[in-house]
Design a protein around this nucleic acid. Structure first.
Length: 562
RNA sequence: GCGCCCGUAGCUCAGUUGGAUAGAGCAGCGGACUUCUAAUCCGCAGGCCGCAGGUUCGAAUCCUGCCGGGCGUGCCA
């Protein structure tokens, strides 16, 4: 409809010589219902070009538009305010649209705006050094939902998890496991580490200073001891320790993600890039392009040429690449795979580093406009009105699993999705745990369950909406308002997908549930005249479809009863 | 110091890419269950959109400068 109106207006404007050919017609949904279903500011924007006052232009355009539109679809074209043209949709158009929404069912809301395009969404990407934290949770849920949104627009999406298994972090992890293992199978000397706050922890003397202190490390060591006894004491290699740790931790990470309904298409590990010599190739290409130099036995990338304060190191003195270097090679790989959009979901702590990767990709000749970084701000858990203190170093943090245990997967997903990624998120545990009207997730689920319940009751009393139903009987204000709300759904999906902003869906679903609750309060379904009851039952059905589809996009269950 | 994000009702946050009288939830106050789920609904109250300029028909939205908070500014990831 929006496009149809736009085309009509464009055609009308073509009859004016003074209007530039590239003038883009804007159509928006007015905030006030009295202002109609669609509005355009065209007359106001053309006032200076046409050298006429906006009201007069609007009258002219409105008249021309009235002559062109189908009266079965548009009931009124009015001029209002300083020169807005307000357009009202005909009731028959709305009920036709409602009928097609019902017909579309579980695919209502899917669009074709992304058809024929491809995208890769990289998210989570936590190195397997420990359980996922609450921060990873926001990343995971955000990335997953953006991927789903893109799919709903017809885009072919790959969900990918990238991790570093060749760097320092994994080495320290392996050393931590080894030290714990040694303590389990042999008599080793212990030492005491003291934290800033005065608390202490006992670790073996061979334990690295910046080692991983979590209890899960001891579990992994125990598993190795059970399998191998003391046999690993003689090996010099960290390999068996790293491999075991990686396997155990990854299994746990995948399990946590599965609880949130997240399944990746691919786990891409850094080692692959070394095995193919791709990291070296990347460095060579950057060097050939003249963007590197050696200093202090390290190889530097000239990021100052891209507006940074400092150059950055690609290869350390030790000969080991920094994490950035394989990351560049990895992104080059994504380009080679030919995606139209390359989306990275990153926490705010990466703001300063990802531009280096982009700069390098520019040097390598890739079209970096395709790379998008979806940056999200940090999460603060709030309990009893106070922030929950966490320290990653001491493994003294709430894991994502803990959170899911406490508030359920549905609530976890919804709370991460209901705010825009760019705002710092306060996750109120008291509110999230509460199974009451205060909890926004339950409000949506309740509306859905209520409709399911009405359906059961309708079946009991023999109210039937399976045959021909006259939807034009739906003329009550609350019915019309609900229909209009439901028909917005595909646009909401498009906008949320285009902006990579799942919170629009969450906000919208609340509005749907509110519109339904109002309708429910003022319009009875059962006990009414059979044909009106059937029409209202259909409207309830369409509402259920939108709620279920919307919740599905967000990865949240739509229960039949509560 | 520099870079990025944020500042909107008492609290947590939306705000359709610059539109008409700035919205919602929670908290507060007052109403509504012999009728399809009251985990609900209706009403009231609540605002210098951080501050000051600028751009234009029109600014919460764009530009500049301040103020306040967060995250960075590693040969850690």
């Amino acid at each position: 409809m929006r496009d149809a109106l736009r085309q009509h207006l464009r055609a009308i404007l073509d009859t004016y010589d003074a209007v530039p050919a590239d003038f883009e017609v804007e159509l928006e949904r007015p905030a006030q219902p009295e202002h109609g279903d669609w509005a355009t500011n065209t007359a106001m924007r053309l006032a200076s070009v046409l050298k006429n006052n906006p009201r007069a232009i609007a009258e002219e355009l409105a008249e021309a538009l009235r002559a062109r539109v189908d009266p079965n679809r548009v009931s009124a074209v009015e001029v209002a305010g300083p020169g807005f043209i307000n357009i009202r949709l005909a009731d028959t158009y709305l009920t036709d649209q409602l009928a097609s929404a019902l017909k579309a069912g579980s695919s209502f809301g899917r669009t074709t705006t992304g058809a024929g395009t491809t995208a890769i969404v990289e998210y989570v990407s936590a190195n397997p050094t420990g359980p996922l934290t609450v921060g990873h949770g926001r990343n995971a849920v955000l990335g997953d939902t953006v991927a789903t949104l893109l799919e709903w627009t017809g885009c072919d999406v790959t969900r990918e998890y990238y991790y570093n298994d060749a760097g320092r972090q994994m080495r320290v992890l392996a050393q931590s496991v080894r030290a714990r293992y040694e303590a389990l199978v042999a008599d080793v000397e212990m030492k005491t580490l003291t934290h800033e706050d005065g608390s202490t922890v006992e670790v073996p003397v061979s334990f690295p200073d910046d080692g991983y202190q979590g209890a899960y490390i001891i579990d992994i060591a125990q598993a190795l001891a059970d399998e191998h006894g003391a046999a690993l004491l003689t090996t010099d290699s960290l390999r068996p320790f790293q491999d075991k740790a990686e396997a155990v931790i990854f299994a746990e990470i995948e399990g946590t993600l599965a609880r949130l309904g997240i399944e990746m298409d691919d786990y891409f590990n850094e080692r692959r890039l070394y095995d193919d010599n791709r990291v070296n190739e990347t460095v060579e290409r950057l060097t050939e392009a003249g963007y590197t130099y050696e200093k202090d036995d390290a190889l530097w990338f000239k990021t100052t040429e891209f507006g940074k304060d400092k150059d950055t190191v690609l290869i350390k003195q030790t000969g080991e690449p920094t994490y950035r270097t394989p990351d560049i090679a990895y992104h080059a790989d994504k380009f080679e795979r030919g995606f139209d959009a390359i989306i990275d979901v990153l926490g705010a702590d990466h703001v300063a580093t990802y531009p280096d990767v982009i700069s390098a990709l520019d040097v390598l000749g890739y079209d970096t406009d395709r790379v998008e970084v979806l940056l999200y701000q940090f999460v603060t858990l709030v309990r009893g009105g106070e922030p929950v203190k966490m320290s990653t170093r001491r493994a003294n943090y709430v894991t994502l699993d803990d959170l899911i245990n406490e508030v359920t997967a549905d609530v976890t997903r919804f709370f991460f999705l209901m705010r825009s990624a760019s705002t710092h998120l306060d996750f109120d545990l008291d509110l999230a745990t509460e199974a009451s009207d205060k909890n926004p997730v339950f409000y949506l689920q309740y509306a859905h369950a209520r409709i399911c319940s009405i359906y059961d009751k309708a079946a009991e009393v023999g109210l039937d909406a399976t045959g021909d139903v006259d939807l034009t009987l739906l003329t009550h204000d609350d019915e019309t308002a609900l229909i209009k709300e439901l028909l917005r759904f595909p646009e909401v999906i498009d906008r949320a997908a285009a902006q990579r902003a799942p919170h629009h869906v969450a906000t919208y679903l609340r509005e749907v549930a509110t519109a339904f609750s109002q309708f429910y309060g003022s319009c009875h379904i059962i006990g009414e005249d059979a044909s009106l009851g059937a029409a209202r039952l259909k409207l309830a059905d369409a509402t259920r479809t939108v709620l279920r589809n919307g919740l599905t996009v967000l990865g949240i269950d739509a229960p039949a009863s509560m």
